[in-house]
């Protein structure tokens, strides 16, 4: 009688020659199979780069993006915290696009196209135009692609409100509406005034209700290091997508160039 219901291992009696043949065969297959991982690794490492990373890896990252956009929902919000939880000295990381002084005549430039695709006069806005929209506060866990995170307190306006108010991001030139999502361009591009830093954001993520054009940090105007006068805050993407000191915004159906994606990072970086 056994203490468990564990079955005995099957047994058989075989001539030694058969055992030897089976052993050799198994090890032959084993040796052959172990070439596969070596081959896969060599193939990947010898592939040409596509935007800073080996092509096969880039292809899968793009598939990962397709998968992620199937379960992406604007109803999935980042967790918010009480204001007291926010860091008093928010961390600064990265100075690309901020190495030159902010131009005195800074205005937020938004490129527009007519419904026929012809470029129109860009829209030039002041901070007062931005602040005229309903103010939102967001206290959330800012996540850096490096792996750290920090609870920070930001204020600004919803990017979706901004697009609606100024009738942006659509091919028809009308305000975006939930009923005509086909009218929207697929991407939003942003760059700093000196074009030293630039990001591309998929439209779905840009329209998320927690995506802000932020102008205050801890209730104070954003300082230069954090991206004065106005920056992008997109909490469901890593920090690298949260472009500081926006100079120009544009819309397109192809991926706008992206500073870190050119350097081998995933383009989507959605959380």
């Amino acid at each position: 009688m056994k203490a468990t219901n564990e079955p005995d291992l099957p047994e058989s009696d075989l001539p030694e020659s058969v055992i030897r043949r089976r052993t050799l065969k198994a090890f032959g297959w084993f040796a052959l199979a172990s070439v596969v991982p070596v081959g896969v690794y060599t193939w990947i490492q010898n592939s040409p780069n596509l935007a800073g990373i080996r092509k096969p890896l880039r292809k899968v990252l793009d598939v990962n993006e397709d998968i992620a956009s199937t379960y992406f929902s604007s109803n999935h919000l980042v967790r918010t915290y009480p204001v007291e939880a926010a860091a008093r000295v928010p961390r600064v990381n990265g100075f690309d696009g901020l190495r030159t002084p902010l131009p005195d005549d800074w205005k937020l430039q938004i490129d527009r196209q007519g419904s026929n695709g012809e470029p129109q006069e860009p829209l030039l806005l002041t901070m007062d135009d931005v602040k005229a929209l309903p103010r939102q506060e967001l206290v959330y866990d800012f996540k850096c692609v490096e792996g750290w995170s920090q609870i920070q307190h930001w204020s600004g306006v919803r990017f979706s409100d901004f697009m609606e108010r100024y009738q942006l991001g659509t091919r028809s030139g009308k305000a975006p509406s939930p009923d005509t999502t086909d009218d929207l361009y697929k991407f939003v591009g942003m760059e700093t005034p000196d074009k030293g830093y630039y990001v591309g954001i998929d439209m779905e993520s840009a329209m998320h209700p927690q995506t802000l054009l932020a102008y205050e940090l801890n209730g104070e105007p954003i300082n230069n290091q954090h991206g004065a006068p106005v920056r992008l805050l997109i909490p469901h993407k890593y920090g690298v997508k949260n472009l500081k000191r926006i100079g120009r915004i544009f819309f397109s159906d192809t991926r706008p160039r992206d500073f870190w994606a050119e350097r081998g990072y995933d383009y989507y970086l959605g959380l």
Binding site: I53, P56, V60, L61
Partner: peptide
Amino acid sequence: RLAEGMAWHFV
């Protein structure tokens, strides 16, 4: 090698 690491990891 963060970018490289993320690419391999997510593949």
